[in-house]
């Protein structure tokens, strides 16, 4: 029986790096605050992929990687709730969610 060669860890890492880079790019360049938040979500998920991949290939005997991923997902949900609430209030105050125009702290 021809066994399928096991998939090495590198493809996971490449995906994770790409995902993280896209997230950073979104956070740094998107003007819409909602899109910025989405970028943050991408970065968190890139981290999740890393957690799980390293757990699977790092010889972890317990479930640390998965547990961490679940925790990150939970925290991400909470973060999204808080951040969206903030964005909502920002919108009420400034009538825009364009982060370029929200610069009250300019020195």
């Amino acid at each position: 029986m021809m066994s399928i060669a096991p998939i090495p860890i590198q493809p996971y890492l490449v995906v994770s790096v790409l995902l993280f880079a896209i997230g950073v790019l979104a956070v740094l360049t998107r003007r819409n605050a909602i899109a910025v938040l989405m970028g943050v979500e991408l970065m968190l998920n890139a981290a999740n992929i890393n957690f799980v991949a390293f757990w699977r290939y790092g010889g972890g005997e317990q479930m640390e990687g998965q547990v961490f991923a679940v925790i990150v997902i939970t925290v991400a949900a909470a973060e999204a709730a808080v951040a969206l609430a903030i964005v909502l209030n920002v919108y009420r105050r400034f009538k825009t969610v364009n982060v370029d125009q929200i610069n009250l702290m300019k020195g």
């Binding site: 956070v27 740094l28 360049t29 982060v99 929200i102 610069n103 009250l104 702290m105 300019k106 020195g107």
Partner: peptide, 16 residues
């Protein structure tokens, strides 16, 4: 003072 733009994304860029 010039670095204090008030642009959140500029700060984030510096972090990165």
């Amino acid at each position: 003072q010039a670095t204090e733009t008030g642009q959140v994304q500029f700060y984030a860029m510096i972090f990165v």
